[in-house]
C-alpha cells in the first residue's frame, strides 16, 4: 500500500468519525426539538476542528506506517486525478441543495447543514472511489 493510499484512509476515517458523530447528534436533537431552536453552530465548528486534528494525526500514523513502502507513483496520480474529478462532479450536484434552499428562503440551519452534509458525503464518496480504484484499477 503506498503512502497516498494510506493518507486516503486517514482522511476517510477522520470524516466518518467526526461528521458521523455530528449528524448522529443532530438527528437526535431534531427528534426532540424544532430545527430552528437547535444550537448547532458551536458543535459544527468543533466538528470541523476535530476533523482537522484527527486527519492530521491520521496522516502522521499513515506516514509512520508507510516507512519503507514505495512513495507516490504514476498510478496514485492517475487515481487521484480521476477521483478528484468525480468527487468535484458529485459535490457540484450535492451543493445545488443548499443553493436551492437559499433561493427558497429557508433558514440558515437547513442551508448550513445541507452544505456540510454535501461536503461530508463528497469526502466519503471520494475515499470510497479511491479505495475501489486501488482494488480494481478502474480509474487508473
Amino acid at each position: 500500500m503506498t503512502i497516498t493510499e494510506r493518507y486516503q484512509w486517514a482522511y476517510g476515517f477522520a470524516v466518518l468519525l467526526t461528521s458521523g458523530a455530528y449528524f448522529v447528534w443532530l438527528g437526535l436533537r431534531l427528534a426532540e426539538q424544532p430545527a430552528d431552536s437547535i444550537e448547532y453552530v458551536t458543535p459544527l465548528l468543533w466538528t470541523l476542528l476535530a476533523s482537522f486534528i484527527v486527519h492530521s494525526f491520521g496522516r502522521g500514523f499513515a506516514a509512520h506506517a508507510a516507512r519503507g513502502d514505495s512513495g507516490s507513483d504514476e498510478r496514485d496520480r492517475a487515481i487521484n486525478q480521476r477521483a478528484d474529478a468525480l468527487s468535484f462532479f458529485v459535490f457540484s450536484v450535492l451543493a445545488a441543495a443548499p443553493l436551492v434552499l437559499g433561493l427558497m428562503g429557508e433558514s440558515a440551519f437547513w442551508i448550513t447543514n445541507s452544505l456540510f452534509l454535501a461536503y461530508s458525503l463528497t469526502a466519503v464518496i471520494g475515499v470510497g472511489l479511491r479505495a475501489w480504484s486501488y482494488r480494481t484499477g478502474a480509474l487508473a
Binding site: L44, L45, G105, A108, I111, T112, L115, F116, A118
Partner: peptide
C-alpha cells in the same frame, strides 16, 4: 464552499 459554510455559522446574510 468552505468559506460559505463558515459565513453561515457566522450568521452572514444569505
Amino acid at each position: 464552499s468552505l468559506a460559505a459554510l463558515i459565513m453561515l455559522t457566522l450568521d452572514v446574510d444569505t
